[in-house]
């Protein structure tokens, strides 16, 4: 192998890459939060037993689960564009991952809701709580406890999916910054190796902090 590694330019642009990593964390975190909220509504809509609620929820969930995430981002970036709704690559990426997260999480939450005994709802209602209060204070907290591990996995997926922004032209997240630097310097291996290390650290940081949160929130 007569390839000469050159790490100096990478070290020089490390601060820029770290800012990119921050943007990656921001996108992944936002998409996860929005996705969780949407997924709760989707799961409730699917459980409601009313056709006009469960059918759209079903379409959302099955589309999110049966097409590639990149396709969903393309749909928002190029598809909405052709309808005259110009969205930037950041928005397309964020909404695309949110759409995907919501679909997968809704399916997880449906299982979580099934794990909360029906008696809990009835007890809450007979103690005088309203339907919304029952969901918010009694059912959803127990459901989240049941699915927390699966949510941690989805969080990591969210980070990994955020790397797709570069394909629709995003230059500010970790992969985007890396690609921008790569185009200028052609040190492909060095830059992407460092990016891989940073992604690994981000994934591990999310997994670990989820464990800490779970320990704080869900211990009996």
């Amino acid at each position: 192998m007569d390839y000469e590694f050159q790490w100096r330019p990478v070290l020089r642009s490390l601060p820029e890459m770290l800012w990119g990593a921050l943007q990656t964390i921001e996108i992944a975190g936002l998409a996860m939060m929005l996705g969780t909220v949407l997924a709760i509504f989707l799961a409730l809509a699917k459980r409601s037993g009313k056709k006009y609620l469960s059918l759209p929820a079903d379409m959302w969930i099955e589309t999110a689960r049966n097409t590639p995430a990149l396709f969903q981002i393309y749909m928002l970036y190029f598809g909405l564009g052709s309808l005259g709704l110009q969205v930037g690559s950041y928005t397309a990426l964020l909404l695309g991952i949110t759409f995907n997260n919501a679909g997968y999480l809704a399916e997880t939450f449906r299982g979580g809701f099934a794990a909360v005994p029906e008696t809990q709802t009835r007890a809450a209602r007979s103690l005088g709580l309203g339907a919304v209060q029952t969901q918010w204070h009694i059912v959803i907290p127990q459901m989240l406890r049941a699915v927390f591990h699966a949510m941690t996995n989805q969080m990591v997926w969210s980070v990994l999916m955020s790397s797709l922004g570069v394909i629709v032209g995003l230059t500010t997240d970790l992969t985007g910054v890396t690609q921008k630097l790569n185009v200028v310097t052609y040190r492909t291996f060095e830059y992407f190796f460092v990016a891989a290390c940073l992604y690994y650290l981000i994934s591990k940081a999310f997994t670990l902090s989820a464990r800490v949160v779970a320990w704080r929130l869900f211990r009996y």
Partner: peptide
């Protein structure tokens, strides 16, 4: 676990550059 914690896109780029580095 590394392969599950690093985006596939990055893995593809790295693998592809291996391909050309090692000729």
């Amino acid at each position: 676990d590394v392969f599950r914690s690093v985006p596939l896109l990055i893995q593809l780029v790295l693998f592809n550059s291996f391909n050309s580095m090692l000729k």
